[in-house]
């Protein structure tokens, strides 16, 4: 069984145990265990097809695992989905902004779906937009934003209801290097400031370098878990990139 262990003595926010997901005969996820504590940034590093998106779909309740349990805080996502989902903020790999609505329209829609009333929603929207330096774009249609700005709006939206766990599924796909760096830095700050747990899926090794822990996922299995430094030391590689390629094979590069 693959093990991903958190080390800090802080509350466990995500606890997934022995998770299995099959698509027909193919094992998309093979007995995965994950626990993430508050304030931890965990990078889920794997090549395309490793099972990252499948894991996210299970964590968000979009699909159900064939085996194992997933708990967000105290709530089992399968048996008690509503409180579990209330604790999650998600930035999906696929863009999910409604391009026909304005920025503020998108944020208000999400806020209402999460039960935030007008005044509270308005205040939080203002706060998040200011932090992401997008206040001046609030009235613009989402369609008019650049790719990087759309991603920042999706992040702002995911944070509106103050989740304890932020799930980000390859959020930097399609972004230029500067936008990637800004997004990552902002999330790192969020971990510190709000003590929020973050699971950041990526296939880009330089992003994983900023994480507290890295989980290397390949063909539905966890190959290695540890801090970036630990992974480098344990594999005897020169750096995290070489460690990742050494673990998953050159085609992952």
């Amino acid at each position: 069984m693959n093990q991903i262990q958190a080390s800090a003595e802080t509350p466990i926010v995500l606890d997934a145990t022995d998770v299995v997901k099959n698509y027909g005969a193919r094992k998309a996820l093979d007995h995965i265990d994950i626990s993430i504590r508050a304030g931890e940034l965990v990078a889920l590093l794997g090549p395309n097809g490793a099972g990252k998106t499948t894991l996210f779909q299970l964590l968000t309740g979009l699909f159900v695992p064939d085996g194992g349990t997933i708990r967000i805080g105290d709530a089992d996502i399968r048996r008690n989905a509503v409180p579990a989902l209330a604790g999650i903020g998600v930035v999906f790999q696929q863009p999910t902004l409604d391009l026909d609505l304005t920025v503020i329209g998108n944020l208000r829609f999400h806020a209402n779906l999460h039960g935030l009333n007008g005044r509270e929603a308005g205040s939080r929207i203002d706060t998040e937009l200011a932090k992401l330096k997008l206040t001046d774009r609030a009235r613009d249609p989402a369609r008019a934003l650049s790719g990087g700005q759309r991603r920042r709006i999706e992040l702002a939206r995911a944070l509106l209801h103050r989740p304890s766990l932020l799930l980000m599924d390859e959020p930097t796909v399609g972004l230029d290097p500067a936008s990637r760096r800004d997004l990552l830095n902002h999330v790192v700050r969020l971990c510190d400031e709000r003590k929020m747990a973050v699971l950041w899926a990526t296939h880009l090794v330089d992003e994983a370098d900023h994480a507290d822990r890295v989980v290397v996922l390949h063909q539905g299995k966890v190959l290695k878990v540890g801090s970036p430094r630990q992974l480098v030391e344990e594999t005897g590689a020169a750096n995290l990139h070489d460690a990742f390629v050494g673990l998953t094979g050159p085609e992952s590069d």
Partner: peptide
């Protein structure tokens, strides 16, 4: 367009 995911992950039955 992906908006459905947003709806289905809202904390409501």
């Amino acid at each position: 367009m992906g908006v459905m995911r947003l709806l289905l992950t809202a904390p409501l039955p």
